[in-house]
Write a protein that binds this DNA or RNA. Structure first.
Lengths: 197, 197
DNA sequence: GTCTATAGCCAGATAGAC
DNA sequence: GTCTATCTGGCTATAGAC
């Protein structure tokens, strides 16, 4: 592993758990097992190091979302595949959603980069497809944007607010993990049951 | 308005938008129109000022949740009342959910205070009621905890990640607001449709 | 490329006049 | 109770030896 990779991995770990403002460059250096000066040698400053981490995190999540949103599957199949693959992925990378959400919320400047990215999650095709399947009588008449928001909410929320969810429902770490495994199919079933005629 | 109130209101505004780590005491003092030294006179330090703000935010949300969770209504009625009243409230206080979620995520120490609080959102009675209504054949057989998580997800997610939601679906501030108004009834309808026999 | 040492700044907190 | 002035520590960033 190159020094740059060591730094990047350490930075990802610290940034993703503490956020930009609360992260100290010293802590990243310690985690990487190198000196603080090397951080500035490899990445010009804290902002640029953070941006590398953020864009990497974003780049991991976005492509697989679009792959599903833009496939030739039916809406029901897309819902099943999305919940399954998204939840599987974030179980392995549990800090990604809250990291991206928190930094998007608190860093308005990132929104533009988010929107300009050609790989950004884009539900345009899915929205049209929902309208079509409503006209065909496959799906109950609802606002397509609400449905897309339903899908995102049901899959992402538990990973965006894990501490709150565990606190309210009263779950150990293990119980939470089990609930998330079950959620891969549960959330798809719920959404499909709600909209199928 | 007393000086303490001026400070508290200013602190709430800054903390809720920037989070604990990114907030500067100077900025709170400026917002309050007083001197930085007064902050330390009224509230011993940054942590205590923050905790006052956090607990107040928490105390605004929790009681109304429990009021609904513990009423004598049916599960369907509770779902309708919860989405209606929660979304109405956070439309007026849009920074509360992301503030509470972010600080709970990044401040593990708060979890204990969160759990010890007698007013914390507690779905225990609702969970039992769901089991009962499943046995009575009113609700389809599902994991009650998944249903509670569905309710929380469908109502809270959009306010926990507003920037991401607006970015992905492509909504202006006004369109987002309209979607949230509609969501008061939409989300309840979706959940009830999914579980009613 | 990697380190030590330090510059330079900024934030939280306090002392003390009024 | 409210202010000005200042201390102290910690943080980002850089200079410079090896």
């Amino acid at each position: 592993m190159t020094t740059e990779e060591k730094i990047f991995n350490a930075a990802r770990k610290i940034f993703q758990t503490k956020g930009f403002a609360a992260t100290r460059m010293q802590e990243i250096a310690d985690e990487a097992g190198i000196n603080k000066a090397m951080l500035h040698y490899c990445f010009k400053n804290k902002e640029q190091l953070f941006e590398a981490v953020f864009m990497n995190a974003f780049g991991q999540l976005a492509p697989q979302i679009n792959l599903i949103f833009n496939s030739e599957d039916s809406v029901f199949e897309k819902i099943q595949k999305f919940t399954e693959s998204y939840i599987s992925f974030v179980i392995e990378n549990p800090f990604l959603p809250q990291f991206i959400i928190q930094e998007l919320n608190s860093n308005p400047g990132f929104v533009q980069k988010f929107m300009q990215n050609p790989n950004r999650p884009n539900p345009q095709k899915l929205l049209l497809q929902i309208e079509k399947e409503i006209k065909l009588g496959i799906i109950k008449p609802i606002n397509p944007k609400q449905l897309v928001l339903d899908i995102l909410s049901m899959t992402i929320f538990a990973f965006a607010a894990p501490v709150m969810v565990r606190g309210i429902i009263g779950l150990s770490e293990e119980e939470f993990h089990t609930l998330m495994q079950e959620r891969k199919t549960h959330s798809a079933n719920q959404i499909i049951n709600a909209i199928k005629k």
